[in-house]
């Protein structure tokens, strides 16, 4: 058992320090604040959707890269996660297109 644990320690990836974790948290709060700003400020309404999507992607990426350690860990895990994620996003877009949602949404946004 001790050999396993020693090997476990040897194979573990590097983790970021506490300061990085706190910095990411600060960015997450700032990005959430920006989201709320975009939501409430009237003149940003025409670009509400793209701005919110960009901000959400930024938050999502920060958590995945630093808190879930994808930035530091084996690339195998990144593959495990990113491929299904891309597939899921493609399926979602396909479904929305098939139900004509995006068509109507675009005409609304414009």
């Amino acid at each position: 058992m001790s050999a396993n644990i020693a090997q476990s320690a040897a194979l573990e990836h590097e983790h970021p320090g506490v300061s990085i974790y706190v910095t990411v948290a600060v960015f997450l709060i700032l990005l959430t604040g920006m989201e709320l700003t975009v939501f409430y400020v009237q003149f940003l309404q025409p670009v509400l959707v793209p701005l919110l999507i960009i901000l959400a992607i930024a938050k999502f990426s920060l958590v995945a890269m630093f808190y879930m350690h994808l930035h530091y860990d084996s690339k195998v895990f990144t593959t495990f996660f990113i491929f299904p994620l891309m597939l899921a996003v493609t399926l979602a877009i396909s479904l929305l297109l098939l139900f004509e949602y995006l068509l109507h949404h675009l005409s609304f946004a414009l």
Partner: peptide, 27 residues
């Protein structure tokens, strides 16, 4: 933690698409 953070990132998506985009509708 991986599970917990995943729940977190799902909420990031829900918060944006469900709550902040609540006004986005069909024409």
């Amino acid at each position: 933690g991986l599970y917990w953070h995943f729940v977190d990132v799902v909420w990031i998506v829900i918060f944006t698409l469900v709550y902040l985009m609540r006004t986005v509708k069909h024409a």
